[in-house]
Design a protein around this nucleic acid. Structure first.
Length: 210
DNA sequence: CAGTCTCA
DNA sequence: TTAA
């Protein structure tokens, strides 16, 4: 456990970078909304047929998709059959800088999943394991309303730590904890000036073989 | 294939 | 909140 400047404690195996992206908050939100203008936010279904509580879209060479056929990465948006929008340069720059700061130099993400949470939306504990390259880390940037990040272990039964995430915070994990279970507790209601009553999460991954 | 969900 |  390493204490940080804001008094929060990063759980083992997780790099916690509070405020790392705060200076670029407005530009990141603008870029994310630009992606959503071309590849609309949509509610995906799990393979079991249940709707997720977040709305999602993607940018980059590959995008994460879930439907009755399963979880996978697709090079094109199933909604428009167009390639996903290009990853904004600012996204790539920040994701690489955060990864480097966390000890993962050379991170070259090709996928950015954008999840939009409205109050009540959540993400149950899960593993990110649909990527072809599990040697690359996961970089997650929070924007808008604060949320509680659930940081579990290698087994679903491991009790997760709870870490508050605010707009501009970045978390990074990889290596030995690359497949750790994680999630987001139900989003409390609130209002964030640039974004309104919502939280956006940008998750960067190397989805295709490096 | 699926627990990125829902309910006990 | 935790287990299943």
């Amino acid at each position: 456990m390493t204490p940080d400047l804001f008094g929060e404690t990063a759980p083992p195996g997780l790099a916690y970078l509070p405020g790392f992206a705060l200076a670029e908050e407005a530009a990141l939100i603008g870029a994310a909304l630009g992606v959503a203008a071309a590849a609309p936010l949509r509610v995906m279904s799990t393979p079991g047929g249940k709707k997720m509580s977040v709305a999602a879209t993607n940018c980059g060479a590959a995008g994460w998709v879930s439907d009755a056929r399963g979880y996978r990465y697709e090079r094109r948006d199933p909604l428009t059959s167009l390639p996903w929008p290009a990853m904004p340069g600012l996204f790539l720059t920040l994701a690489q800088a955060a990864a480097a700061q966390a000890g993962f130099a050379g991170f070259n993400p090709d996928a950015c999943l954008i999840n939009c949470y409205e109050p009540g939306a959540k993400m149950a504990l899960h593993q990110d394991k649909d990527e072809a390259d599990l040697t690359a880390p996961i970089v997650s940037i929070s924007l808008g309303l604060p949320a509680v990040f659930l940081w579990g272990g290698a087994n679903r039964s491991d009790k997760p730590a709870r870490l508050p995430l605010h707009s501009g915070d970045v978390v990074v994990w990889g290596g030995a904890t690359r497949l750790n279970f994680h999630g987001i507790a139900p989003l409390p209601s609130g209002h964030h000036p640039p974004l309104g009553a919502a939280r956006l999460n940008l998750t960067f991954r190397r989805a295709l073989r490096a």
